[in-house]
Each structure stands twice: as structure tokens, then as C-alpha cells.
Design a protein around this nucleic acid. Sequence first.
DNA 1: AAGACGAAAGTGGTTGA
DNA 2: TCAACAACTTTCGTCTT
Length: 306
Amino acid sequence: MTYTQKCPECGSTQLIIHKERGEVICKKCGLVVEEKIIDHSQEWQEFDSDKSEKRRRTGAPLSYSRYDMGLGTDIGQRGDLFQLEGKGMSKFFRLRKWQYRISTAIERNLKLALAELKRVASYLKLPKSVEEEAARVYTMAVQRGLVRGRSMESVVAGALYAACRRHEVPRTLDELSEASGIDKKEVGRTYRFITRELGIRILPSNPVDYIPRFASALKLTAETQSKSVEILEMAENSELTSGRGPTGIAAASLYVAALLNNEKRTQREVADIAGVTEVTIRNRYKELFTKLKLKDKLKHIKKIAA
DNA sequence: AAGACGAAAGTGGTTGA
DNA sequence: TCAACAACTTTCGTCTT
């Protein structure tokens, strides 16, 4: 999908389309250009090219929030039985019994898991699309028997984390951990496990995605927010971001931006919101200073203030 | 007194043999 | 499977406002 509009505020053409929020946001100045956009894209995922061609928009949409997407198939009880006798008959009954057992086991599991998933998702105020994605991931995990040996809750948390990352509405591992009551390490472990097993590729999370949330939690102005995005881009160009924790970088750039805009927040405050320590912020923004030569700028501003 | 700073030691995860 | 390694945290003492 392309978006060719210009930002009416600053004229920038760098507009970000946020499907889950239904908003178009200017990357430069943070202005919400358009909101409550209707998502016209198809709501299902495609597994292979063969099936995707057969998809038609008829009937109720497929939903991964339902354990069998409303499309279960059972081995029948009557009708085609008359052709079988003896061995065939007993085999048939055995199959039916197992199918019943397996499907009820999976169903029970999914029922519980999806309820848990719903709870955690709403606790974190996650958009519906992420919830669906997580449900899909979880369903695949169950079908592949990846839940065995792991607690259901931790797999749910892992699936949610993966879904968040994919939809670029990042929540930190800490937040997932707090919402689900699962140890942070455990969430990370199962997250890595299921994404590896299911072959889900995830882009490394972008620090910019954290900025709006952190900024609003710190009650910073929009100017500061876009300032920090600016700093973030400069940092990225100077190769300062690779290999570092995205939250730390986001926190540091916010801290610096707040300083530059005379909206000073203590390192402690920023650190708490971002879920990193003050030390990390110090290290990051020390790097920002030396590499980006922000030092002079800051001194300049201080002089004006004094 | 609170915040900022930095050194040093410890932790969990990744990588490469 | 193990050791080396980088990033990050914890802790604590010192400096600045």
C-alpha cells in the first residue's frame, strides 16, 4: 500500500501508516494526518499460493480466535458404515475414538489458552489484529505439539510477544512478563523456541516504535517526541544502534531530546518507563554526545536558559 | 538532599570452535 | 558442549546542583 500524501504541517512525505491504530502519522513532526481509516485488506493469512487463490469473501471470516476456525471435520457416526465389516469396522471405530480424543484435547487446551490470551492481550491493551495473530501462532504451536513440556501460559505469552513484534506494536519482555505472570526469561525462551520451530521471521525491533509510548508515559510534548525520533535517525546513520538493546537507545534519545527542549526528566524516570537502568541510559547518551557532537548544542541551550 | 556520574563486579544470552 | 564475549544490570562511592 502506498501513501502519497504530504504532511500538511511540515510538508514531509515520510508518512507512516499504522493499520492497527487506523492512523496516518507524520514521521517528522508527529502529526496525525488521518485517523480511523478502515482497513480494506483481507483479514486472513495465506498459507500457500494454492489456497490463497481459492479464498473468497463468503461466509463468516475465518477466525483464529476459534479453536478450529469454525471449520472442524468429524469422522461420521452413520451413513457410510454399511460398507464396512469386521476389521474395517473396528478400525473405523478406533479412528473415530482417537479423533474424538485428540480433538477434544486440543479443543480443551485451546479454549483455556485463548481465554488466557484474551486476558493478557486486553491487559496490555493490544489491538485485535495482534490478538488474532497471537492466536494463530498459538494454534500452530499446539498442532505441532510444541506446548508439550511447557506451560500453556508461557507459550501464550511467547505467541503474544511474537505477534507484537510482527505488528510493530512492541511491548517489552518485562511488560509481557508482568501481564502474564510468567518469568521474563521464560517468555523469551518460549518466544525464541516457537518462532524458530514455526519458522516465523521477525525483524529486529525498531527503537522508533517505542518512542510514542514512552513519550506519552513521561508526558513529553510532541516536539520532544519528534526531536528524539530525529536523534534516533542520526544515531542509526552513525551505526550506534546495531547490537544494542532498542529500549535503551529509545530511552537515551528521549532523555536527550527532553534535555534539549527544556523538558528535563531525570534519568531515573526515563529509565523506569523504558525498563532499563540509568547506567544504560548514561552509556547510550554518552555515545550520542561524542558521536553526534550534540555537546555543543546542549551547552548552547544551557547558556540561553541561564 | 537529590540527581548525575563512573568504576567494578555480576548476570544471561550469543557465538564459534 | 564449552569458553569467550558483548551488552546490560547491580551496587556503591563521589561529584554537582
